[in-house]
């Protein structure tokens, strides 16, 4: 595989990781107040899928979308400022972490109503098809989203009209406090697309190459009118459902067993990819260190800019209700 591409995968994943981890401290200090759903541990999915896309392609996110936004080329400074709910944020401080947008980069938007944006991505694919544009729409959602009927309605219509949409389910095994086995019968999620005749697969979501290869094939076929596609990516979040960990009301309520968390830490998508890059001599340790230093500077600078910025002024409360 092309070395530049591999290097890109690496730096994109590191960027998302550093960015996510950089929020921990300001969340704990209360400087960041809006609910933040970190995607630490799930970076390979965002990067693998979005690297297979062009700028013109559409991406819709959910409540845990920092990674999706950044991987699609979203502006880092604008996202960090948004998480601080500052005026220069990508949603002008009106949205916070769960409401991201970068239209120029094809990141159409993210919002936290579970499964709420899936049918919107469906509409984007419909628009692209209607206009005969070779664009693809991607909908990112979690395992929890498989509970909502609108997902199945969307699968049906996408298959019926052969729409260029890729449904990407990030199965991190939990939906807030519930393990997936308590939310659905023990059947692999990717099979839900089968009755609609949709090509569907399950990939290791912590393996950037597996995700990228799966996504690339799906994107190509979608462009040829062979959509839709469904990809289930198996993964794990290394942080809490919301915030750095799940300490609710003084009681530790992250019900995930310590041993399970430890097991998954070994499958850290970035560490795994580093091993591969070293083995294949794509990058050396010092190259990685350089990349990390560079990205750390970028992320630190984004925080610095956000800290220097102001929050929206109260007179502007009604601004943007309509355009």
């Amino acid at each position: 595989m092309d070395k530049t591409l591999l290097k890109n995968f690496y730096s994109e994943m590191v960027k998302i990781r550093f960015c996510e981890e950089s929020f921990v401290e300001p969340i704990l200090s209360g400087e960041i107040k809006c609910p933040v759903h970190l995607c630490t541990g799930q970076e390979a999915i965002a990067v693998g899928v979005c690297s297979a896309l062009q700028k013109d392609d559409y991406v819709f996110g959910n409540h845990r979308s920092h990674g999706h936004y950044l991987a699609k080329g979203g502006n880092l400074n604008a996202m960090v400022a948004e998480v601080y709910t500052k005026q220069s944020g990508c949603s002008k401080g009106r949205g916070g972490s769960m409401h991201l947008i970068d239209k120029e980069q094809g990141f159409v938007g993210s919002a936290p109503i579970v499964t709420g944006t899936v049918s919107l991505a469906l509409g984007a694919a419909l628009a692209a098809k209607t206009r005969r544009e070779p664009r693809v729409a991607v909908s990112f959602f979690g395992d929890g989203a498989t509970g909502e009927g609108v997902l199945y309605e969307s699968l049906n219509f996408a298959a019926l009209k052969k729409l260029p949409i890729i449904f990407v389910c990030e199965n991190n095994l939990y939906s807030t406090h519930l393990p997936v086995r308590e939310c659905r019968p023990e059947q692999p999620i990717f099979e839900i697309a089968k009755p609609f005749g949709i090509t569907t697969s399950q990939v290791d979501g912590n393996d950037i190459l597996a995700v990228f290869n799966g996504a690339q094939k799906a994107v190509e076929l979608c462009r040829e009118g062979e959509g839709p596609f469904f990809i289930e990516c198996l993964t794990y979040r290394m942080r809490g459902h919301v915030g750095p960990n799940d300490n609710v009301q003084g009681a530790y309520t992250d019900i995930r067993p310590e041993s399970e968390v430890e097991e998954w830490k070994k499958k850290d998508p970035i560490k795994r990819f580093e091993e591969l890059l070293l083995e294949d001599r794509v990058l050396e340790e010092k190259d990685m260190e350089e990349i990390k230093q560079e990205i750390k500077k970028e992320v630190d600078n984004a925080h610095k800019l956000a800290n220097e910025d102001v929050r929206p002024c109260s007179e502007d409360i009604n601004k943007y209700v309509f355009r």
């Binding site: 809006c34 500052k86 949603s91 401080g93 009106r94 949205g95 916070g96 109260s314 209700v321």
Partner: peptide, 11 residues
């Protein structure tokens, strides 16, 4: 006000 709920604490 006839406005969706804003995020920013100032708003």
């Amino acid at each position: 006000p006839d406005t969706p709920a804003p995020a920013s604490r100032t708003l």
